[in-house]
């Protein structure tokens, strides 16, 4: 599978990564190379092999329905560029 420049532009936009026009061609080449490298795995016969979900045999950890966290308003908003009255403040995003 190879990636063209339009696909690179679309993926960059979806990931909110700024990519300049000049970067498109080299990135398309690099991404195509990475995909081709991974595609070698398609040469293996995986019939009857369960998809691996974990490197170690273990099951999903769970918690009980108990409140163990909260009242961290100051800590949670501390890294925000802007906050007011306990809210995060962001540029207007009304659709």
């Amino acid at each position: 599978m190879s990636v063209d420049q339009n696909t690179v532009r679309r993926i960059a936009r979806l990931a909110r990564i700024a990519v300049t026009q000049e970067e498109l061609a080299p990135l398309a080449g690099e991404l195509s190379g990475i995909l081709a490298w991974v595609e070698q795995l398609n040469g293996l016969d995986t019939t009857g092999v369960e998809p691996m979900t974990s490197a170690v045999a273990m099951s999903l950890k769970s918690r009980e329905d108990v409140i163990t966290s909260g009242n961290l308003q100051a800590e949670v908003t501390r890294n925000a560029p802007l906050s007011e009255d306990g809210f995060f403040v962001v540029p207007k995003v009304v659709e």
Partner: peptide, 8 residues
């Protein structure tokens, strides 16, 4: 109150 029931 806003953001008081938010864990990390």
């Amino acid at each position: 109150e806003p953001n008081t029931q938010v864990s990390f």
